[in-house]
C-alpha cells in the first residue's frame, strides 16, 4: 500500500462523503429557496418527454443495481441460492440495459440543452460542470462493466470493490482491495467520489427531496399562518432580479 492508494481509497472517500453530508445540511439550512429541479419544461417539452424519463428511470435502476452489488454481501446471495453465474448474468444484462438507457437519456438531455436556445441560456456554469461529471461517471461505469464483463472474461467486483465499499462505512477501509481493482473500476469510483463532493452544490440536490411523502399525505394541506415551521434562512435573491433580457 503506497501513499497514493491511501489517499485515493482511504482518505478521498471520507472527504467526499463528508462534503456530501455536510454540504447538504448546509445547503438545506441556508438555501432552501434554491433547492429545486430548475425545470426547463416550460421552454421545451418534446425532447424532454423522451429524454428525462429515460434518464431518470435508468438511473434509478442503476442505483438499485449498485445497492444490490455493493451493499449486499456475496455470502448473502449465495445463501439465498443465487449462484455466481446467475448473479453475473442478471447483473450484466440489467446493468447494461439500465446504463444504456441512462446514457441515452442523458445524451438526449444534453443535446436538448445545447441546441434549444432558451434551455441553453438557462444553463449555468454549475450545470455544465455537473453534466460533465455526471456523464463521465456514467460512461466510466458503463465501460467498466462492458469491458470487464461483456467483452472480457468477467470480473467479480463482489470480492474486491464491494467489501471495500462496505469497509469505508465501517471506518476500517481495506485499501488494498480497491488498489488491486481494474483501472476502469478505479476511475469510475473516483469520478463518483468527485460527483458526490459537488452534489450538494448543484441541482442534483432535488434527488434528496424526492416527494415520496405525497403517497401518504392528505390531498389538501392546511397550514396556520402562525405555525412558524422550518424556513430557509437565506433571503430570496434569485428571482428578484429586475426584468430585462437574459444575460449572456
Amino acid at each position: 500500500m503506497n501513499a497514493l492508494d491511501l489517499i485515493l481509497w482511504g482518505i478521498a472517500p471520507y472527504l467526499a462523503l463528508t462534503v456530501f453530508v455536510l454540504g447538504h445540511v448546509w445547503r438545506y439550512r441556508y438555501d432552501k429557496f434554491g433547492w429545486t429541479t430548475r425545470s426547463s419544461q416550460l421552454y421545451e417539452s418534446r425532447l424532454l418527454r423522451v429524454g428525462s424519463p429515460l434518464f431518470h428511470f435508468g438511473v434509478l435502476m442503476v442505483l438499485l443495481g449498485h445497492v444490490g452489488g455493493l451493499v449486499v454481501p456475496k455470502s448473502w446471495t449465495e445463501a439465498a441460492g443465487v449462484s455466481e453465474e446467475m448473479y453475473h448474468v442478471v447483473a450484466v444484462v440489467l446493468g447494461t440495459v439500465a446504463g444504456v438507457c441512462t446514457l441515452a437519456g442523458l445524451a438526449i438531455l444534453i443535446y436538448r440543452r445545447r441546441t434549444v436556445g432558451p434551455v441553453f441560456i438557462a444553463t449555468t456554469r454549475n450545470d455544465k460542470l455537473m453534466y460533465a461529471m455526471l456523464a463521465l461517471t456514467l460512461v466510466l461505469g458503463l465501460s467498466a462493466t462492458v469491458v470487464a464483463n461483456v467483452l472480457g472474461g468477467g470480473y467479480d467486483y463482489r470480492t474486491t470493490i464491494s467489501p471495500w465499499f462496505r469497509s469505508v462505512f465501517a471506518f476500517q477501509p481495506e485499501i488494498s482491495l480497491m488498489a488491486g481493482a481494474p483501472l476502469l473500476f478505479q476511475l469510475h469510483a473516483l469520478s463518483a467520489l468527485a460527483l458526490f463532493a459537488v452534489w450538494p452544490f448543484t441541482r442534483l440536490v432535488h434527488m434528496l427531496t424526492a416527494p415520496i411523502g405525497y403517497l401518504t399525505r392528505p390531498y389538501v394541506v392546511y397550514r396556520s399562518r402562525d405555525l412558524g415551521g422550518e424556513r430557509g434562512t437565506r433571503p430570496a435573491r434569485r428571482g428578484w432580479e429586475p426584468a430585462g433580457p437574459p444575460r449572456r
Binding site: K32, W35, T36, T37, R38, S39, Y222, R223, A236
Partner: peptide, 20 residues
C-alpha cells in the same frame, strides 16, 4: 397550502421543488 385562518392558497417558496 391553504391558510387555515383566512383560506388564502399560497406556495411555500422554500418547499417548492419545481415539480410543476
Amino acid at each position: 397550502y391553504k391558510r387555515s385562518e383566512d383560506g388564502i392558497v399560497l406556495v411555500d417558496q422554500d418547499r417548492c421543488r419545481g415539480w410543476r
